[in-house]
């Protein structure tokens, strides 16, 4: 976790100081080194929530439920980062804060799904019931994301096209590409670090509740 934070600081320095300034977008383009990796780990976070939820209904291991919860909380923060850095870039470059565009809309709905998931968790008191209910919501939500993506895509799109995963190879200059990939790695480690911390808190809370239950 500490390591991830230090690496993140170094990543900022590198992104700002040691990457070329993009010709048409200028300094605004720098936000890309945070925005895109954060979006990646946010979608990873929802994937993990869905996976842990499915495994929970199968194996009934309480730790999977706590892990899904931790992942959802971290994912909420990450989607929030994406949704705030995006408009900051969009205003100078697109001339608008918000566009009903496929990736924006998908991320917004990812945020709504996370919030809905966490709100549900807050309103169920029995831990087992909470785990089952939220697993159901987690699985269905994870399946919803591709559908939202597809249907908004058919609606319309103006977002910059994918630049790394495309048939004729990445179209970024080397130092920009390596900084971006470094960002992916750091945000993944950061995600894992935050989830582990949050998961630890979840375990402690559970122990405390169990002690209370035993005492009363």
């Amino acid at each position: 976790m500490t390591l991830a934070l230090l690496a993140l600081a170094a990543h900022y320095v590198r992104a700002i100081q040691y990457t070329p300034v993009e010709a048409t977008q200028g300094m605004a383009q720098k936000i890309f080194y945070v925005h895109v990796p954060a979006a990646w780990s946010a979608f990873l976070a929802y994937g993990i929530v869905g996976l842990c939820s499915a495994l929970f209904l199968w194996l009934h291991d309480r730790r999977l439920d706590l892990f899904a919860e931790a992942s959802a909380e971290v994912g909420t923060v990450l989607t929030f980062i994406v949704l705030t850095t995006g408009p900051l870039w969009g205003k100078p470059i697109w001339g608008t804060w918000w566009q009903w565009e496929v990736r924006l809309t998908s991320t917004l709905f990812l945020f709504f799904l996370f919030v809905g998931y966490l709100t549900l968790r807050r309103s169920v008191y029995d831990p087992l019931e909470r785990a089952r209910y939220s697993a159901v919501v987690g699985i269905l939500g994870a399946m919803l994301v591709p559908f939202i993506h597809l249907s908004v895509w058919m609606f319309r799109t103006i977002h910059p096209k994918p630049i790394i995963l495309k048939p004729d190879g990445p179209s970024l200059p080397g130092s920009m590409l390596s900084t971006l990939l470094e960002g992916f790695a750091i945000f993944t480690v950061l995600y894992l670090g935050m989830v582990m911390v949050r998961y630890g808190i979840g375990r402690l809370q559970e122990e405390k509740e169990a002690r209370h239950a035993a005492a009363s």
């Binding site: 709905f109 709504f112 799904l113 919030v115 809905g116 709100t119 549900l120 309103s123 169920v124 019931e129 209910y133 159901v136 919501v137 269905l140 939500g141 919803l144 559908f147 939202i148 597809l150 249907s151 908004v152 058919m154 609606f155």
Partner: peptide
């Protein structure tokens, strides 16, 4: 699921409305 949780009148729309987006579009 929401019939058995607190604030259920609000909980169902919050959970379900995102799922209505693809059919609605």
């Amino acid at each position: 699921l929401t019939a058995r949780v607190q604030f259920n009148e609000l909980m169902l729309p919050v959970l379900l409305l995102p799922f209505m987006v693809p059919p609605l579009i």
